[in-house]
């Protein structure tokens, strides 16, 4: 199935677009999505350690703007957002 990850903050550097689209196994959880994103970074950014660190320390939110846990099951074509470590104001 396909999922879309809206990129914010430092994660915007993962793609020239604002959204990263990934193909994942049906019934994937957020934990699986993190792993898939790390795989994507290893392949496209020669194992960039900073990017991998960002993925591991990020929260994610659902399309209803609720922070989701690693057990959250993603559905086909769902759009979630990556929330890297914050520091605004």
């Amino acid at each position: 199935m396909n999922i879309k990850i809206e990129l914010f903050g430092a994660a915007r550097d993962f793609s020239k677009q604002n959204i990263l689209e990934l193909n994942v196994e049906n019934n994937s959880s957020l934990r699986d999505i993190r792993a898939k994103m790390i795989e994507y970074i290893k392949k496209n950014f020669s194992n960039n350690e900073n990017y991998i660190k960002i993925i591991n320390s990020s929260a994610f939110s659902s399309k209803e703007n609720i922070i989701i846990s690693d057990n959250y099951k993603i559905t086909n074509n769902e759009k979630i957002a990556i929330i890297p470590p914050i520091g605004g104001g």
Partner: peptide
């Protein structure tokens, strides 16, 4: 708690996202 990020732009034309803290 608020998902806001800062990218600083420097005089040497480089720029960097500030590290921040996990939400």
């Amino acid at each position: 708690r608020s998902p806001i990020w800062k990218k600083e732009h420097y005089h040497n034309d480089e720029s960097d996202w500030l590290k921040g803290n996990p939400l």
